[in-house]
Design a protein around this nucleic acid. Structure first.
Length: 486
RNA sequence: CGGGACGUAGCUCAGCUUGGUAGAGCGGUGCGUUUGGGACGCACAGGUCGCAGGUUCAAGUCCUGUCGUCCCGACCA
């Protein structure tokens, strides 16, 4: 093997394919996205990780605003008596609610839940705000932290405290509520695929996977490299369940008092975990350009008595920043090769190398993170003046290529199955998304889970008639993707 | 919450079986030489061995408890 083609050796993280868990944890820590904290199950989101979260927030927030939603903020603490009003909801969340029982030195007369989600407190406020059909719809989103007392935690995928957004809306009719639920589902799908570059299956959840208290739950599900599915966003049609529990009523145009129809929907920083696992490779993260805190990093190459590259990089970076690019200049006193590896690990889409040769020729050498060193097209040299024109195209191409790779993986790991034995084997082996005609019976789903640990991820309408359930032979009602999940 | 493994320098770990002066590599700091895929020399700094009890003349090492991390299940976003 010639020296030029020697594989890039990564010391900090283990190979991805050998042990996805070990790779994932190391990647999150070494890329400086998160640090473990003194609090069990809670991570610190470091500046680079927060940058990633901010980009998620910016893109989703713009989509929420564009569809008529407004941001607001509700209390972190929820009185127990309020929480108890919706039985199914309480039962669903009881095992993971953290409680405040003491304030200063005084024991509280009523304990306060730290929100695991905010349907309760927001529903209570909606009951006060809504009087007439003219007050509807209410379309509110909250960016917040929530706490769920988890037993096993992992960075982003499951932490006791996590950041998310939760949308809560109220409508005059069932149709409007359902439309909202589906509008958001599509918004999430669009964000996941076109911004995070994570292809997903979107659809309805089975009754067993439904949000506690919801009439219907919809979700987007992504496929991780180990063949497990990651629920990456949910949208719930709550019907009138919460309106009844929290007395959200209004006088309609026909002068009748009616309960409102509500929805809730959320995406958490868990989606970042999905993005990391889906796109990363043995060298570390590969962040899709639209989500990247740093789109391009300048690495000036200096020699003894020749540090002109630093000045050239700084000037070029300043110009790109003014043009709206997110760039950084790495002026640390390290070897260029060391910096290449570090920025590879941190997943910056484009590296801009400028050395003495480039300074003399007024050029810059671009290296793209989605290609390997052995790929002749990983690097190209362009005129320094043309960076602002070349970059958008390059970033866009990287975005597209990352999505295409992930899409190809999802498609090649989706199995349409007719045979029962094959279905069970694929589920048990964590082969990926296993697509069957299904009867939609809870007992059938429970059986599959007991045998294989796989559950339904999302359901979609059945095409054609007279299909039977691949698992039990009863008449099929839907098509279902089964997979083991995170 | 069950089963398993592990907590010793910033990181990865050795030392524990058989109690007796706290170790290595990497990393850090300073100076110098280097710099287009993880450079090198010299010098320096860095630890109440996760925490709390106990046994002992003496505990990183033995005992008990506790907290945390990872893996596999169960549960959950």
């Amino acid at each position: 093997m010639s020296e030029a083609l020697a594989p890039v050796v990564v010391k900090e993280i283990p190979p991805k394919a050998a042990d996805l868990s070990a790779w994932y944890t190391a990647a999150c820590l070494k890329a400086e996205l998160v640090s473990y904290s003194p609090v069990r199950g809670c991570v610190v989101l470091r500046p680079y990780g927060f940058g990633l979260w901010e980009n998620l927030r910016t893109h989703l927030d713009a989509r929420f605003k564009a569809t008529g939603h407004e941001n607001a903020y509700f209390p972190l603490l929820i009185p127990e008596s309020l929480l108890l009003k919706e039985a199914e909801h309480v039962e669903g969340f009881a095992p993971e609610v953290a409680w405040v029982t003491q304030g200063g030195s005084e024991t509280l007369s009523e304990r306060l839940a730290i929100r695991p989600t905010s349907e309760v407190i927001i529903g209570t406020m909606y009951a006060q705000w809504i009087e007439s059909y003219r007050d509807l719809p209410i379309l509110i989103n909250q960016w917040a932290n929530v706490v769920r007392w988890e037993k096993a935690t992992r960075p982003f995928l499951r932490t006791m405290e996590f950041l998310w957004q939760e949308g809560h809306t109220a409508h005059a009719t069932a149709e409007e509520g359902r439309d909202e639920t589906l509008r958001i589902l599509e918004l999430y799908r669009d964000f996941a695929e076109n911004v995070a570059a994570v292809p997903v299956y979107a659809g309805r959840k089975s009754a067993g996977e439904r949000f506690p208290g919801a009439v219907e739950t919809f979700a987007i599900e992504a496929l991780m490299p180990d063949g497990r599915a990651l629920q990456s966003g949910t949208s719930h049609d709550l019907g009138q369940n919460f309106a009844r529990a929290y007395d959200i009523t209004f006088v309609d145009a026909d002068q009748q008092i009616k309960h409102a129809y509500t929805t809730s929907w959320g995406v958490s920083w868990r989606m970042l975990g999905g993005l990391i696992m889906v796109h990363g490779d043995d060298r570390g993260l590969r962040i899709p350009p639209k989500m990247a805190p740093i789109e391009a990093v300048f690495v000036p190459i200096v020699r003894s008595g020749d540090d002109r590259a630093i000045e050239v990089c700084t000037t070029a970076a300043q110009r790109l920043r003014q043009a709206g690019f997110r760039v950084r200049v790495d002026t640390r006193e390290e070897q260029p090769g060391w910096k290449y590896s570090e920025w590879d690990l941190r997943g910056v889409p484009v590296r801009i190398e400028i050395g003495p040769r480039d300074v003399d020729a007024a050029t810059a050498t671009l290296a793209r993170r989605d290609r390997d060193k052995s790929d002749k097209e990983q690097r190209r040299t362009v005129a320094l003046d043309s960076l602002a024109e070349v970059l958008p195209e390059l970033l866009s191409d990287i975005q597209t290529s990352l999505y295409a790779q992930a899409k190809a993986f999802l498609e090649s790991h989706t199995y349409v199955v007719q045979d029962r034995a094959e279905f069970f084997k694929l589920c048990k082996d964590r082969a990926g998304m296993v697509d069957i005609a299904w009867c939609e019976r809870a007992e059938c789903e429970a059986l599959v889970k007991a045998e294989t640990s796989a559950t339904t991820r999302v359901l979609r309408p059945l095409e054609g008639a007279n299909a039977t359930c691949v698992v039990c032979g009863e008449p099929a009602k839907v098509r279902a993707y089964f997979a083991q999940s995170y």
